[in-house]
């Protein structure tokens, strides 16, 4: 990472519109920011555009054909749409809803997959360091150090998800995007991931999409509430949960819909 003084905001979203089909916007006029070394939770009912917004942050939304994007997202002041996708995705890693380790790779290979898939050649000792560090950071090292050369898919769901986090942070990204990372996990695995996220924010900036309001309240510093593609309200989680300004936020938080 560079040594120039960094502003508090890592990501700046400016007047962002995203449409999967012409005229049908999944994200409408969203402007927001994400603070460095914080956890920002994006909440909202199904289909409100929260995943689309998250995916736009490392341009994963472009995998859909015919997608239309207006507005801008700045990463450290630079527009992500002017960067190469490959460079962007190294700086902005992603963890998905379901654990998705590469089934053809061992645990070890999975952690360094980001390097091998980009033809970045490393010495064995460097790779070993990266693997150990990443796995320690996700509190998986002690559980898998004996079985690094077994397939990643042999782990439990929660372990697989932590492996996926390790794979994403092996690149040492600035931002880590998490798309409902615990929705496929049991409560124990979920609480482990939540603890992990609290640790990870010391080093990285996390953006988390969640369905689970109590999860957002537990672990996030800032929250955004989206409804029908619009960003209804954003701010400090405590403020948003205790004194929401918008009646729609209040209705959602009190369980009137969603």
């Amino acid at each position: 990472m560079n040594n120039t003084p960094q502003s508090e905001n890592v990501l700046e979203i400016r007047d962002l519109f995203i449409a999967y089909e012409p005229g049908r916007y999944a994200v409408k006029d969203v402007s927001a920011h994400v603070r460095r070394n914080s956890i920002t939770a994006i909440m909202g009912p199904s289909g409100c555009g929260k995943s689309t917004l998250l995916r736009a942050m490392n341009r994963m939304h472009e995998l859909y054909p015919n997608i239309e994007t207006k507005g801008d997202i700045l990463l450290d002041g630079q527009s992500i749409f002017s960067m190469s996708v490959i460079e962007l995705r190294r700086k902005v890693g992603m963890v998905f809803q379901r654990p998705n380790p590469f089934p053809n790779m061992t645990i070890y290979e999975n952690v360094v997959a980001g390097f091998s898939l980009n033809d970045i050649r490393l010495k064995k000792s460097q790779r070993d360091d990266i693997v150990e560090n990443a796995l320690r950071n996700v509190a998986l090292w002690d559980e898998v150090k004996e079985s690094l050369y077994r397939k990643g898919t042999f782990l439990s769901g929660g372990q697989q998800q932590r492996l996926c986090v390790a794979r994403a942070i092996a690149f040492n990204p600035e931002v880590l995007l998490l798309d409902e990372p615990t929705s496929a996990l049991d409560p124990i695995a979920t609480s482990k991931i939540e603890d992990l996220l609290g640790e990870l924010k010391k080093k990285y900036t996390l953006v988390l999409v969640t369905h689970n309001m109590s999860q957002a309240a537990r672990i996030s510093d800032d929250s955004m509430f989206m409804y029908l593609g619009e960003l209804v309200e954003s701010g400090h989680t405590n403020t948003l949960f205790t004194t929401p300004k918008d009646p729609r936020t209040e209705a959602y938080l009190t369980g009137k819909f969603g």
Partner: peptide, 28 residues
């Protein structure tokens, strides 16, 4: 699963490499 492809893309993997390092080995 689509998720496997997405995982590769999210790591900045170029398209052709996703095919020969992920799709082909996984479906070997």
């Amino acid at each position: 699963p689509i998720a496997i492809r997405e995982a590769a893309f999210a790591l900045g993997t170029p398209y052709y490499k996703m095919i020969y390092k992920i799709l082909i080995p996984v479906s070997f």
